[in-house]
Design a protein around this nucleic acid. Structure first.
Length: 445
RNA sequence: UGGACAGUAGCUCAAUGGUGGAGCAUUCGGCUGUUAACCGAAGGGUUGCAGGUUCAAGUCCUGCCUGUCCAGCCA
């Protein structure tokens, strides 16, 4: 008997097939049973008729519990009432394993209960659909880069130094060489790659020891960071919008079923087409003042609201939301106050108080998904910044070499994979955007 | 790290300071088109932990633990 997967079942109408999978749920009605089978690619309802199947098959089905594993043979038919839905008229059953009582029932559960059983929760249809969309997002990222001349350039995870300060780094012992830190960005190495290969990208896990308990933060997340020689900040933004449009439109095209399964309103995603709004920091401040959004600062007395929003302050969640509300596409906020940004960003030649950085805010309140910039390519300027930020100059000598030996203007950005999944899937929380989320209060399972 | 809220059966939740219940799950029985199927029955409890108030605490008070949400930080 031909073994088939459920997502290809429509090719086998009126044919006999075998499905290898698990029992997702079962409903019975006297002399009829309706087992729902899942095989990782989808779910199909089986029909077991007592008067049709051998007595042993009927008895074996009666013994099945949720998540029991099995091989089922039957004839594929169209659903009598539903369009484009198929059923399996069951003829035979081979039980592989009778599951112990399964903890995740088809009823409601709390997040802690589910996260404690994340290894089982991912079998649920919504979680499985999210992980399939994640797969499509990552594959489309790789394909975009490959098809546009970017070279995959893997950067190290053990690093000796901080990219943006040591307080958010996880430290570990490294033989006789003292401390090693888990990478929080591959950018500095990617810059070396860009000088060697022109356009590169790195895609891998990154680690931030931030005690952030929000729906947008995890301590271990995947980031895709392209770095391009001879790109300025405007080239960088051109790339961002072309790239993001490709990823979103491809997920829309290839993950129709999954998006429907998780109840995603795709009309919002369909609008993600070039061009995206480009808003300078100064223009963003104007939006905040027009909407009377203050800076909120925590003091000893409590909350303090400062209006109008003072120039130079970074935006928080309420500010980002107010800006994004104005548009129905990802918004690129660029040319930030240099004070609030990292040491490696190039200053605007027209205004030294401005850094040539860009943040991309996802629509629908999902926050920042991309942070990018044109990098400082002048040796003296960069060395000065490293000193100003009290970073260990010796550790950055190799990085400064990139400015000593044939320095060129270059730019790049970092895309948070889970934040992108969070947005595209319209999730309540980023913990569902990765198979096993790591958060300050969770390292298991 | 700060603020708000919560913790009762395997799960999701009820219970005026006065005998701790329901639905689902589990086990048993019934039902020939079910869709989180339905109907009947059974088993299932150290009310997060430690103190305190009270004749009496799941309920009120204090401390701790755990979790959730929000803020900051960031992708």
């Amino acid at each position: 008997m031909e073994r088939v997967y459920i997502n290809k079942i429509s090719d086998y109408v009126d044919k006999d097939v075998t499905i290898h999978g698990w029992l997702y749920n079962i409903r019975s009605s006297g002399k009829l049973m309706f087992p729902e089978l899942r095989d990782g690619t989808g779910i199909i309802q089986g029909v077991v008729v007592k008067s049709v199947v051998p007595e042993k098959v009927w008895e074996d089905f009666s013994k099945l519990t949720q998540e029991s594993s099995l091989k089922v043979t039957g004839t594929v038919t169209k659903h009598p009432k539903k369009e484009k839905v198929y059923e399996l008229q069951i003829k035979d059953l081979e039980t592989i394993n009778i599951s112990e009582p399964y903890p995740i029932t088809p009823k409601e559960h709390g997040v802690e209960f589910l996260m404690d059983r994340r290894h089982l929760w991912i079998r649920s249809s919504k979680q499985a659909a999210i992980l399939r969309i994640r797969n499509e997002i990552i594959q489309s990222v790789r394909d975009y880069m490959y098809n546009n001349g970017f070279i995959l350039f893997d950067t190290p995870i053990f690093t000796p130094n901080a990219c943006e300060g040591t307080s958010t780094l996880f430290a570990t012992d490294y033989f006789d060489l003292g401390k090693a830190y888990l990478s929080q960005s591959g950018q500095l190495y990617a810059e070396a790659g860009a000088m060697a290969l022109g356009k590169v990208y790195t895609l891998g896990p990154t680690f931030r020891a931030e005690n952030s308990m929000t729906r947008r933060h995890i301590t271990e997340f995947w980031m895709m960071e392209p770095e391009m020689a001879f790109y300025d900040i405007d080239d960088d933004m051109d790339l961002i919008e072309d790239f993001l449009e490709y990823v979103v439109q491809r997920v829309l095209k290839n993950c129709k079923d999954e998006l429907e399964q998780i109840g995603r309103d795709v009309s919002a995603l369909e609008k993600v087409k070039k061009p995206f709004p480009r808003v300078t920091y100064d223009q963003a401040i104007e939006i905040l003042n027009k909407k009377d959004i203050p800076l909120i600062r925590m003091t000893e007395k409590g909350e303090e609201q400062i209006r109008p929003f003072p120039w130079g302050e970074d935006f928080g969640a309420p500010q980002e939301e107010a800006i994004v509300e104005e548009f129905d596409k990802p918004v690129m906020v660029h040319r930030w106050p240099a004070e609030a940004k990292s040491f490696y960003m190039k200053r605007d030649p027209e205004n030294p108080k401005i850094a040539l950085g860009v943040d991309v805010l996802a629509p629908e309140g999902f926050g920042e998904i991309i942070g990018g910039s044109q990098r400082e390519d002048n040796f003296d300027e960069l060395e000065k910044r490293i000193k100003e930020h009290n970073l260990p100059l010796e550790e950055f000598q190799w990085y400064l070499d990139l400015r000593r030996f044939g320095s060129v203007p270059h730019s790049g950005f970092g895309l948070g994979i889970e934040r992108t999944v969070n947005w595209i899937c319209n999730l309540d929380h980023i913990r569902e955007a990765i198979p096993f989320a790591r958060r300050p209060n969770r390292i298991r399972p």
